[in-house]
Amino acid sequence: MGKIYKHHLFWPLSVLAALLLFNLFYSPDFFSITMHDGHLYGSLIDILNFGAPLILVAIGMTLVVATKGIDLSVGSIVAISGAIACLTISKGADQNVMGLILTSVLIAVGLSLFLGAWNGLLVSVGGIQPIIATLILMVAGRGIAQLVTGGQIITVTSAKYAYLGSGSLATLPFSIFVVAAVLVIALLLTRKTALGLFIESVGCNPSASLMSGIRANGVILSVYVFCGLCAGIAGLLLSSNVSSADGNNAGLWYELDAILAVVIGGTSLNGGRFYLTGTVIGALIIQTLTTTIYMIGVPPEITLVVKAFVVLAVCLIQSDSFWAVFASRWKTRHYPGEKEGIHHVS
């Protein structure tokens, strides 16, 4: 029992619990869930609904980070995916035809897969550093999204498309089910097959994995494709929630929030072990934080300062050197050999 704080979900869960506890005392309305016309309403449902795109992107990002990579282009892919879907729908004569909606969703998903594959090829076959390889698409992708929308906001009036992001199924927002489906698929693929082990192995040491017969390039390519897919679906949810696509602002800073969620969730940016459930909690923390700050009436821009402190705190908690500093201060006895050990950790 004494080791409970060592569990990888301990810190993320306590932060989330602390946030919720704060809300419980500050605004008791926070937990009230009401029923209107067969839909559930309430802050908690809002957090799940508005947090859905972020959770999706963060799930994809987790796998990329696990391979010691990073995908900066997710925000741009979110924008492109939403833009291309809305453009296709807005071109249609009748925007409520199911075929048209399906086509537009397929085009958007296909394009995101392609963009993910582009990132994956640059990183795996091209051997380019992930930050740089995805930076290309992050810069150019924002331009492409603006090109698609013509720099304006494309509005669609399709009730069927809007269902994706704002409709509800069994009294819960439909987007929650999309997220749950993706999460379950990702969990099954990584925990019930050897794929998860491959990803961790590639993240720890690509050349050693190659020597032991893992196709490192294939694994890396597939995680980037998956990340692109997640970002693409997130783009669809985001654009359908507001029934419009904004090439300039949709998905802006999503990459940073997603990376933040992954790091809060306990996955190290150094690759290796990854925690999908941790990531989901991390994304929920970010969304709860945003909602809380809105609710207590502080200017929402202050969120950034709070986020900065959360990032720093989480990173410091995870940093071995940070604990080493304290450990050496608290300890009364010092052994000569130990001192060297601490210094050689890198």
């Binding site: 990073i70 930050i131 940073l256 990376i259 933040l260 790091v263 940016l269 150094n270 200017p299 821009e301 202050i302 969120t303 950034l304 300062v305 709070v306 986020k307 900065a308 402190f309 990032v311 720093l312 990173c315 410091l316 940093s319 071995d320 050197s321 940070f322 500093v325 950790v345 890198s346």
Partner: peptide
């Protein structure tokens, strides 16, 4: 100093710095 002494990736530390500086702007005025 944080990057060096606590061995956290520059990417994350400067990301926090980015949020912090941008947020402080809004603390001064929106």
């Amino acid at each position: 100093a944080i990057i060096h002494y606590f061995k956290i990736q520059p990417f994350i530390v400067t990301l926090a710095g980015m949020f912090m500086a941008r947020g402080l702007c809004y603390v001064i005025s929106i």
